[in-house]
Design a protein around this nucleic acid. Structure first.
Length: 568
DNA sequence: AGCAGTCGTGCTTTGGGGTTTGCACCCCA
């Protein structure tokens, strides 16, 4: 059993316990254990098998979690997990994923209205049954109808980052199969969409039966959905589907292009082929007159057959990519190695779990030239946010540390300052004026009217001490919608005030999204890609931000933290 | 449930605001 699978099961246990309002510290212990196992750089099974090592020696894993890990490795589950799975129907969990509903209200809906599916719930809301219940009103009913889509998607699609872990594990495994000659992921995973519904693996094999057998022997497989001559589908982890398609080597490019999509992109491409009296399908590119094949072994050859250069998968959404390709104006998309700084991270002063020094050392290890320490301001009570006095103390500490890192890393005095519900910043101007770098962000009053919340953000942009708006739309993928803000007005104001916008690389945020990024690029607003790290490992999420930036068509030139700090 | 140290026990983030209702629930990093 893979580390990620074990971690997922501990997280599931924590979810179920949370649902039962059990001791929050026990819940945290499960989450902590899950994170610890996820972050290991070796299989936990290897540690379990080694007589000289103890699972309980791992930080975050004690006697109990060590024992449960052993049970998982032996049987794939443990009794407490099974008990809770029995006790809590999956539909109740699904209902509680609707923003605004929690465990109690979800259970009430399930029991009182006999809700068996999200569609049942939708019907009950439309018939006005929900607002008649004690503890529910008209606003809650509207909120449920608005949030149903989010809950539905959460049960069907996983974060790109989660898909990436799974794809990497399966891909590394499949590459050890001697019958496989070519292998590539296709689908929305290859295009870097923010969520993934399933995974598509494309393979050329010298022995198809052997390749399929090998695929079916993957240790994380929980079942086989179907197996034919050219396609096999298995289930892994939480009922997630992974397809493998077998094609001939001379069809590989055409198949890869076809199965990567998007559908809209493929329709457009085929229309272009038709205009040239060609036909493109998953087997190749063919002339209509004599049926002869003109391309298909590589993707390049497919695009070339209609007179276009190869188009990066991240751009294949039928937005601007064909026009760019036709005019030889495809953006040279940004890469992880272009990033030289990270301007959003937290420390133990608020809700981070590493010190300034630990973050600095980790940043150097990742090849960065500069970082900004940006802890929360005081309004964020839950994270024990900083007031002006504590913030100035932190800056004194940074002054001390700077000497040690001179010539190796620039450490900037920053702050993630809240934009208050009534408008205005959470810290006085004289304090913000002393910072090297000020992020402004909304955490509270997210459900305010479009006018209110837009005005708050515009006010922050107009504040001369604010440099950048962090996670500008506030959305959490599969969990929470964006603020109802006027993004067009925000971009215009950012441009005219010479302010930057963040692309928050946290895989649950990825905020701004691809559409907004493309708009920011058109406006000429510099984007800053930040990790918002709350730990040393949190710095690793930069790669997800890069993927999202590429989907927005961003180049190195469009992203501010590809430049040295002194060049700004 | 993990952890530190007291080796059995206490500690482990915080508190205000909205909705619906009159206290309970949910949200916010």
């Amino acid at each position: 059993m893979e580390n990620t699978t074990i971690a997922d099961l501990f997280d599931e246990m924590a979810d179920l316990m949370e649902f039962r309002s059990e001791n929050p510290f026990r819940i945290r212990a499960y989450r902590g254990g899950a994170q610890a196992i996820r972050d290991l750089d070796e299989p936990i099974a290897a540690i379990a098998d080694d007589p000289n090592r103890e699972l309980a020696d791992l930080p975050g894993i004690g006697k109990t979690l060590a024992e449960k890990t052993m049970r998982l490795l032996e049987s794939g589950t443990f009794p407490q997990l099974e008990e809770l799975r029995e006790a809590i129907p999956p539909i109740v969990i699904q209902i509680s994923r609707i923003p605004g509903l929690g465990a109690k209200k979800a259970a009430k809906l399930y029991e009182l209205l006999d809700i068996e599916s999200l569609d049942d719930l939708k019907r009950a809301c439309q018939e006005g049954l929900v607002s008649k219940l004690k503890g529910f009103g008209a606003k809650t009913e509207t909120m449920i109808l608005d949030g149903l889509q989010i809950a539905k998607q959460a049960s069907e699609r996983i974060y790109w980052a989660t898909g990436d872990e799974l794809a990497t594990t399966i891909g590394d495994y499949m590459k050890t199969c001697t019958a496989i000659e070519m292998i590539e992921w296709a689908g929305s995973y290859r295009r870097g969409r923010e969520t993934i519904g399933d995974l598509d693996l494309l393979v050329v094999a010298s022995d198809r039966t052997a390749a399929m057998d090998f695929f079916e022997s993957f240790s994380g497989r929980s079942g086989t959905i179907m197996r034919g001559d050219t396609k096999i589908s298995i289930r892994v982890a939480k009922a997630f589907q992974v397809d493998m398609r077998l094609v001939d080597a001379d069809q590989f490019g055409a198949a890869l292009q076809y199965f990567t999509g998007s559908q809209a992109h493929n329709i457009h491409l085929r229309k272009l082929a038709k205009e040239r009296d060609l036909k493109i399908n998953e087997y190749g590119v063919f002339r209509n007159d004599d049926g002869s094949k003109v391309a298909g072994d590589t993707e390049q050859s497919v695009y070339q057959s209609v007179g276009l250069p190869w188009i990066a998968p991240e751009l294949r959404e039928d937005r601007d990519e064909f026009e760019w390709a036709r005019n030889d104006a495809l953006p040279e998309l940004i890469e992880l190695s272009d990033i030289v700084g990270d301007l959003h991270m937290h420390t133990t002063a608020t809700d981070g779990n590493a010190s300034i020094r630990e973050m600095a050392d980790a940043a150097i290890k990742r090849g960065l030239q500069y970082i900004a320490i940006t802890d929360h301001s005081k309004r964020v009570t839950m994270a024990s946010g900083l007031d002006a006095e504590r913030l100035r103390q932190q800056w004194l500490a940074i002054d001390e540390i700077r000497k040690e890192y001179d010539g190796r890393l620039q450490i900037l005095k920053g702050i993630e300052c809240d934009i208050l519900e009534k408008g205005g910043m959470d810290l006085p101007d004289d304090c913000l004026a002393e910072a090297d770098w000020v992020l402004a962000s909304v955490h509270y009053g997210q459900k305010q009217s479009r006018e209110q919340i837009s005005e708050r953000i515009l006010g922050a942009i107009e504040n001369p001490h604010v440099d950048c708006i962090a996670h500008p739309t506030g959305r959490l993928i599969n969990r929470r919608p964006a603020y109802d803000a006027d993004m067009e007005a925000i971009m215009k104001s950012a441009k005219s005030h010479n302010k930057w916008l963040e692309l928050n690389a946290n895989p649950a945020r990825l905020d701004l999204n691809d559409i907004h990024l493309a708009a920011a690029r058109r406006h000429g607003i510099p984007i800053v890609i930040n990790t918002d790290a709350h730990s040393v490992d949190g710095l690793n999420v930069m790669k997800y931000g890069i993927k999202q930036a590429r989907r927005g068509g961003l180049t190195k030139r469009d992203v501010a933290n590809t430049k040295s700090w002194i060049d700004w």
